[in-house]
Design a protein around this nucleic acid. Sequence first.
DNA 1: GAGGCAATTATTCAAGTGTATAATTAGGTC
DNA 2: GACCTAATTATACACTTGAATAATTGCCTC
Lengths: 210, 210
Amino acid sequence: MSDERRKFTRESAEQRKLDLIEATLELVAEKGVRGATVRGIADRAQVTQGLIRHYFSSKEDLITAAFEHHMTQMTDLTFAPVTQVQGSAREQLRVFVRSSLMPPVVDPRSIALWAGFLNKVQHDAQMKDVHAKTYVHFRDQLEGLIRAALEEADMPTEPEQLYRLATACNGLIDGLWMEGGALPEAFAPGELSQIGLYSVGAIIGLSLVD
Amino acid sequence: MSDERRKFTRESAEQRKLDLIEATLELVAEKGVRGATVRGIADRAQVTQGLIRHYFSSKEDLITAAFEHHMTQMTDLTFAPVTQVQGSAREQLRVFVRSSLMPPVVDPRSIALWAGFLNKVQHDAQMKDVHAKTYVHFRDQLEGLIRAALEEADMPTEPEQLYRLATACNGLIDGLWMEGGALPEAFAPGELSQIGLYSVGAIIGLSLVD
DNA sequence: GAGGCAATTATTCAAGTGTATAATTAGGTC
DNA sequence: GACCTAATTATACACTTGAATAATTGCCTC
């Protein structure tokens, strides 16, 4: 019959896994890890629940894969703007701070995912490792940008002091990121970036505002 | 018979509610809201599950009560040290920043609770309201301390600028608080407080380090 | 275009979930 | 010391959960 529909179409393993991971992230953001049920995920990805077990050995496995995918994505999103800047070290630092405090990095969904995964992160060794590595990477990149900007301005800094500056700026950015995502209506567009630039500049003693 | 044990003992409504709320908070911190089941909560509080319905109209109701209890407790914990200081405005600000970045305010459990409740906060109007009010209260108190310290130092500041300073310091404290709770082993005791004092001082232009 | 096999769906299962209702019993009152 | 009522336990129910297995079926190969 001409109106007979395929009951399903086959997809490549990569595509199907990606579909399942993205559906998982949506649901984790909405309801947390325990609220992201295999049936809910399958529905969201428009497949039946049995397929999940075909691609992932367990729900745990899928959750871990989704977490790693998300962390990689966030890292890429955060550092992409900087790699496209050819300007001075100060300009690179400015771009980094600004883009870290704007959409799409600042986003209620990101916060919801961070919160949704935290329990797992605190209990699962593998996820804890990924989380710590991502944090250290972010902090180290920031420290490198700060060091370059200070050297460029003829303000060489002791390693220990540099560590403190980077930790402080990292905390500031994370805190503003969190507040921007948790209370989106509390800040005007660009406000967080402005506050971030001013404050990072104040902390490191090198103004980042024009 | 002399060895016959009471099958249960009656408690006042306040005590039982508090027991249930504390058991709830423990489980939310450990497993999130959905992982805090009525049976698990009842076990933890050493009662049977039916009793929960006797004191709370639903699990939802208990969760909300636990959240409000926790937020009140955190607020008290945060502001108690300041109220016991009679020193200068600068000294009060120092105490506030320092104690906000030390145990028991900085604590993995607090972060876990924050994360565990976030989903509910984002979806439940009542909880969103409590959350926003707590945030605003914290920010306003901080702004007041900053204003007083700056006035005391003969550095009067425009309201708009003051708002920006308070938001930045608030973000900094929240970010360091989050990192201290999420990565406890990454910071030595007192390290976060030291970094916080230095950075808040840098942001507001009034050193808080001796 | 016929096989064949892996991708996908369909069904089943035991355990856990919140809620509702019935059955006990502790502990104050007279 | 016998009520007697509210606190507490005990039991039941309908539904959801992750996982396991069986049954289909799309699509590539020859």
